[in-house]
Every structure is written in C-alpha cells, then in structure tokens.
Computed example of a mutant assay.
Amino acid sequence: MASEASELARRLAREAEAVCRYYLSNGERAGRYWVVGDVHNTPGRSMFVRLQESSKGAAGKWTDAATGQHGDLLDIIRECRGLRDFSEVIEEARRFLKQPRPEPQLASKPVRSVAPAGSQEAARRLFAISGPIEGTVVETYLQRRGIARIHHGGSLRFHPRCFYRPDEHSATETWPAMIACVTDLQGRITGAHRTWLDPDGFDRIRLGKAPIDTPRRAMGDLLGNAVRFGVVDDVLAAGEGIETMLSLRYALPTMPMVAALSANHLSAMMLPSGLRRLYIACDADAAGDAVQATLTQRAEDAGIEAIALSPRLGDFNEDLHIFGLETLRAALRLQLVPEDVVRFLHSSMATAE
C-alpha cells in the first residue's frame, strides 16, 4: 500500500490546484500557492499549499502557519473528509482522480475602485485599508533582515491580500505585502510603496520577498516626497531603501529619517525648512556616489550642512545583518558629528534594547 500511496500522491501533485479547488473550496489561488484557513477548509489565510514544484519543494506540500502542521495532498483528503482508516483515504484519492475535470475558471477581476489605479487617492485608500504590522509576515520579514526593533513611526502597514499583476496580459494575483506611505513635507499621503512578501518563508536569494518578477512597486506621486520615520526637527538622515533606513533607525531610533525609495528620488527629495544638518546614507555604488554629490550641493545651496554616512558593505541593512547592531553603532559613532553622537547615539544606547 505504501508504493500505491506514493504513486497516488504524485498523481495528485500533478493536479494540485484541482485538488485544492475540490477539497479546499473556501480558499483561493495566490500566485504559486493555494491559500485557505486550515486543512479542514475553514475560510482564512493561514494555510499555504504549493501548486507547482520549485526550489522550495514539491507541488502539493502544505504548511499551516498558525499551527505548524504540514503534509501532502493525501493528508488534506484525510483531514478534510475526516477519514480514519488509510484505506479510505486511498479509495477517496482514487475516486477523485477518476472524476472528469471541469474547465478551469478564469480568475474574477477585482472590482475597480473609483480612484484611478496608481493615483494618489488609490495610494491613500490602500494604506487606509491595511493594518498594523505587529505579529504579521511584515514584522517577521524585517526581523529576519536583522531589524529586531522596527521604529517605523506608523509609516508601515500590512495588507494580507495585496493585488499584484505581472503585466497587462496576466491575471491578477494576491500576495501579502508591506505597505509604506509616501508623504510630502506637510504630512499628506501622496503615494504608497508595496513590497510583496513570501508567505512560505525566508531564503537567501529573495530575502523574504515574494517569488514574483517585481516584488517592489510604488504608486502615486513620489517626486520630492518620501517614506518618513519620525518628525523632522533640525537633523535628518535620508537614504534610498526602506530596509536601509530602518536599519539605521534601529541603531539611532530618535533620529528622524526618510527613505526616498530610489537614487533618483533621493537626489530630488524636498528639504524641510529649518533643517540644519542632513546625513546622506547612500548605497555603496556608482548611483549612490552621484546622488550624494547632487544632494550635497542642493543642501549646501540651502545653507544645510551635508554629511555622508557610508556603509562597509553594499548598504546599512547588509552591515546590520552581517556585523550586528553594536558594530553598526561603532561605525556610526565615527561618522556622526560629536553633538549628534551624544544626542542620538548615546541616548539610544542608554535605552534598553
């Protein structure tokens, strides 16, 4: 019976989506996964069934993130049908495989919002319907990148089913996503940045982002604006990426910071009135060097002191992840103005981690 069970499991795996649609009808497809509440077909998004073989594993394998349960499609049939004798599971699997397959249904299109796609209003609505990041895959994603404490000041939210469409000819998928609000100098939301995340875990290649072509996208009006962490007074640190600036914010949680989301947008960032000193945290590449020169000149023209913060590796998130928090703080101590070492670094180190 063991060899027969193995063969049935392989045959079921070849039709993993059909199995899920039949036995887990309260779920839905999300990219390469079928998402449902649990193995008993409860509505929800805790359980993920892999629909295609990949480097992560074979088709048909599933994990329930809430309970830690895992198994294959025969286990789904057993649990969903409440079968106790394994011979009954085998018989049910045979019966399913003999059934004619219905024509696959086209994914229903999401109801179009009144707000045009990609507009400022669409960005505001996306951020408004998203929830806190605490206890979600967003928190896990950032912590696995070394950011143990996430001082985001309310600029990050979590959306469990954020729409993703590879191109205009492809069907819309849904993935969990980190949503960051982009604001202007007056605090008005002008855009949003989405980072789609992998619900199946963290790997070194994608670093926790979803297995899709473009796991990061922005919408709305970005030019001159940024994702803001903290309220600006007279000192500000500015950089490109969200993870880069959250890494610096972990080391210096009381220093206001912004993430402009790209090198070009960083060079065009609007400078707040009353700013006295600007720390520029550029990535260690040619684009970063060019941005630093441009932004330094703009700051100096406005009477603002500009100081470069340089990572040892590619960016400050790499530094944090590889070398750790204390080594990052030691490197920053050498680059900050002495009064800012006292104001931001010493005060941060005095606070219990």
Score class of each variant (00 low, 15 high):
2 A>N: 13
11 R>Q: 14
14 R>G: 11
15 E>S: 14
25 S>D: 09
26 N>G: 11
30 A>W: 01
35 V>F: 12
38 D>M: 01
41 N>E: 01
51 L>F: 04
52 Q>C: 10
54 S>G: 13
56 K>P: 03
56 K>H: 12
58 A>Q: 14
59 A>R: 13
62 W>Q: 02
65 A>V: 10
70 H>L: 05
75 D>V: 12
76 I>E: 06
86 F>P: 10
88 E>M: 07
89 V>Q: 08
90 I>Q: 04
93 A>N: 06
96 F>L: 04
97 L>R: 03
102 P>R: 07
102 P>T: 03
103 E>I: 10
103 E>N: 10
105 Q>N: 08
106 L>K: 15
118 G>F: 02
119 S>V: 11
121 E>V: 09
122 A>V: 12
125 R>P: 00
127 F>M: 01
132 P>A: 15
135 G>Q: 07
149 R>D: 13
150 I>V: 14
153 G>D: 11
156 L>A: 03
157 R>D: 00
159 H>T: 06
161 R>F: 14
161 R>L: 14
163 F>M: 11
167 D>E: 08
173 E>P: 06
175 W>Y: 15
175 W>Q: 09
178 M>R: 09
178 M>I: 07
182 V>H: 01
183 T>Q: 14
185 L>V: 08
187 G>A: 07
194 R>W: 12
196 W>P: 06
200 D>H: 15
201 G>N: 12
201 G>W: 13
204 R>Y: 02
208 G>M: 03
212 I>R: 09
215 P>F: 14
216 R>C: 11
217 R>T: 11
223 L>S: 15
225 N>Q: 07
225 N>F: 03
226 A>M: 09
229 F>D: 00
230 G>D: 04
232 V>K: 03
236 L>I: 09
236 L>T: 08
237 A>W: 02
238 A>N: 10
243 E>R: 01
250 Y>V: 00
260 A>E: 00
260 A>D: 00
261 L>W: 03
261 L>P: 04
263 A>N: 10
264 N>L: 06
264 N>I: 02
266 L>E: 01
267 S>G: 08
268 A>E: 15
270 M>H: 13
272 P>C: 07
277 R>A: 01
279 Y>A: 07
281 A>Q: 13
284 A>Y: 08
290 A>G: 02
292 Q>F: 05
295 L>S: 02
295 L>E: 02
297 Q>V: 14
298 R>E: 04
304 I>L: 01
304 I>M: 06
309 L>E: 08
309 L>H: 09
311 P>V: 00
315 D>Y: 07
316 F>E: 00
321 H>S: 15
331 A>I: 05
334 L>I: 05
335 Q>C: 10
335 Q>E: 04
337 V>K: 15
338 P>G: 01
339 E>D: 14
339 E>I: 13
343 R>F: 04
346 H>F: 10
348 S>D: 09
349 M>Y: 00
